[in-house]
Nucleic acid binder design. Structure first.
Length: 259
DNA sequence: ATGTCGGCATTGTGCCGA
């Protein structure tokens, strides 16, 4: 089972890119972030025509997540539990029926800038809610994959210029500590399991010719439960897409599970 | 490196969020 997470940065602005990617790269499961549209505006027919089931959790203008799958999806959950007043569409969850069932969550973690401030408080509160949900999912002892745009640079090794991010919500100590708490639960950063070296990024800002200078950061992650880590056969970043036509500022990050 | 995008409210272009 090949699972990819991809912050698409606007599904309508990126539809041609997305459809070409689905046809060329053919993920079994794609977790999309920043679809930036309501559910009814999602180009469902175009995606379904290419063999994918579509589940969305959208919002007007901002945020929004979706799961596309060539395998059946069951038990879809929309929204992260823990705050009924939170109307931001940043979490979707479903069970993928492969040779083995895999519970997947697609997440778009709050950016949190400027920090300190209310947006940073929201980020940390959201990460605490995610921690609780991640713990609940572990209790099933089934393979679980938490994939998405975490807006967290886990370590200095995950940035080309770590000194540029020291005061940024993506790299502040509290952000990194909250990310590590997910690891302490028993999850593993799948990419790091397979690639210990620095210099691998998933995001390059549109500004400042970041791509041309390879001034990137690694903020798109797939966290795998122990039962999913046992099935992990590959993890990689599809960097080439950033050089393509009308790219997102993020690229897909992939894992393969023997499931 | 505040020199880029996408989407919204709007009919021109400024604002927000990233």
């Amino acid at each position: 089972m090949q699972i990819a997470t991809f912050n698409i940065n606007g599904i309508r602005a990126r539809l041609t890119t997305l459809l070409a990617w689905l046809e060329d790269s053919r993920p079994d499961v794609a977790l999309l972030q920043e679809i930036k549209c309501v559910d009814d505006a999602f180009p469902r027919a175009e995606v379904e025509e290419r063999g994918y089931a579509v589940e969305t959790h959208g919002q007007k203008g901002f945020n929004g997540v979706a799961i596309l799958s060539r395998l059946p999806l069951e038990d879809v959950r929309r929204a992260l539990p823990g705050d009924d007043a939170d109307s931001q569409a940043r979490w979707i969850e479903a069970t993928v029926i492969g040779r083995r069932p895999v519970r997947v969550a697609g997440l778009y973690l709050p950016n949190g800038n400027p920090a300190p401030g209310p947006k940073y408080d929201y980020k940390l509160a959201w990460m605490a809610r995610m921690h609780a949900q991640a713990a609940d999912l572990l209790a099933s002892e089934e393979p679980v994959v938490l994939a998405g745009d975490y807006n967290v640079i886990p370590q200095d090794a995950d940035a080309a210029r770590p000194e540029a991010w020291t005061d940024d919500a993506l790299a502040l100590p509290d952000s990194r500590a909250a990310f590590r708490r997910l690891l302490y639960l028993g999850y593993s950063d799948a990419f790091r399991l397979r690639e210990p070296r620095s210099g691998h990024y998933s995001f390059w800002d549109y500004q400042g010719a970041a791509w041309e200078k390879n001034d990137g950061i690694r903020i798109d992650h797939l966290l795998v439960s122990p039962q999913a880590a046992d099935l992990l056969t590959d993890a990689r970043i599809e960097k080439d897409l950033r050089a393509g036509e009308k790219p997102s500022d993020h690229v897909p990050v992939w894992i393969e599970l023997d499931a």
